[in-house]
């Protein structure tokens, strides 16, 4: 095993410092007593307390979590179906267009996706709010799900499915009894990815929301425009902690599973 050269160690240290110091500063200064965000005035948790009493934030948080859970779940179902169609069902009419529509949203600027969905909702005369944001989130999340799940399906031994069918399963039973249990880790991480994409989205939600449906990123954005505030730091730290903790936990679980499979 070779040791890292000093140059490589420097590159990694500086790089990770660049990635993590901004987030660390944000978290540290969310415990700042002073209202001046950048000047330390002593330790305090008062901004967290004031956050818990802020009706607007609590409402937005509740709306955001509901949208994230509903959209991630539906997107996971649709995205997994799309992945099955692309990987397992071979050539069908319109396949090129289908795979194009799966990959295009991944590189599409959010302002365009948001604007076009809004114009669709206006043309169809739909009342905008919770459900229009959810529909929009399902649409881009299912593409991410489909990419994640297809890459798992590609490295999957089809003969297992065929064996199940030979033993008397129909395709639906074969999917639920054989395929799904094997690709489940990929499906779960795709679901988690959809949840975080939905929690994080500002641009598309701003275009597709209506009166009464404000999400957390929209709330954060409108107060950030007025300047930095310790309360936003507190809220951001909560979100970072929540998501960071979840991701670390998920990766520990999946690593245990891998080492279990190897033994």
């Amino acid at each position: 095993m070779q040791k890292l050269s000093p140059f490589n160690i420097t590159a990694l240290t500086l790089g990770f410092a660049f990635l993590y110091i901004p987030i660390l500063l944000l978290v540290i200064f969310s415990f700042n007593e002073s209202k001046l965000v950048t000047v330390w005035g002593g330790f305090s948790t008062k901004w967290y307390a004031s956050l818990m009493q802020d009706k607007a934030f609590l409402n937005a948080a509740w709306t955001t979590f509901r949208i994230a859970l509903v959209s991630a779940t539906i997107a996971t179902v649709l995205g997994t179906m799309a992945a099955m169609a692309l990987v397992r069902l071979g050539k069908f009419r319109g396949r090129t267009l289908f795979s194009g529509m799966i990959y295009a949203p991944l590189v599409m600027p959010e302002v365009i996706t948001g604007l076009s969905l809004l114009l669709l909702f206006v043309a169809m005369n739909v009342t905008r709010g919770f459900w229009t944001i959810t529909l929009a989130h399902i649409t881009f999340s299912m593409c991410y799900v489909s990419v994640v799940v297809s890459s798992r399906l590609h490295s999957f031994d089809v003969s297992l499915e065929e064996a199940a069918i030979d033993l008397g399963c129909n395709t639906i039973q074969a999917f639920f009894k054989v395929t799904l249990p094997i690709i489940l880790p990929a499906v779960i991480s795709a679901w988690l990815l959809s949840v975080t994409l939905s929690l994080d989205d500002l641009v598309i939600a701003s275009f597709t929301s209506g009166p009464g449906a404000t999400t957390l990123p929209m709330e954060i954005y409108s107060s950030v425009r007025l300047g930095v505030s310790p309360q936003i730091n507190a809220l951001s730290s909560l979100l970072v902690g929540l998501v960071g903790g979840g991701v670390i936990l998920a990766s520990i679980i999946s690593r245990r599973q891998i080492s279990k499979e190897q033994h």
């Binding site: 994080d200 954060i220 930095v228 979100l239 991701v247």
Partner: peptide, 21 residues
Amino acid sequence: MLIILPFWTSFLIRVYAWIGI
């Protein structure tokens, strides 16, 4: 994982963090 982790935390919050800096 240390490279991917920031990608999972909110984009908006990461941009916001730079305002204070």
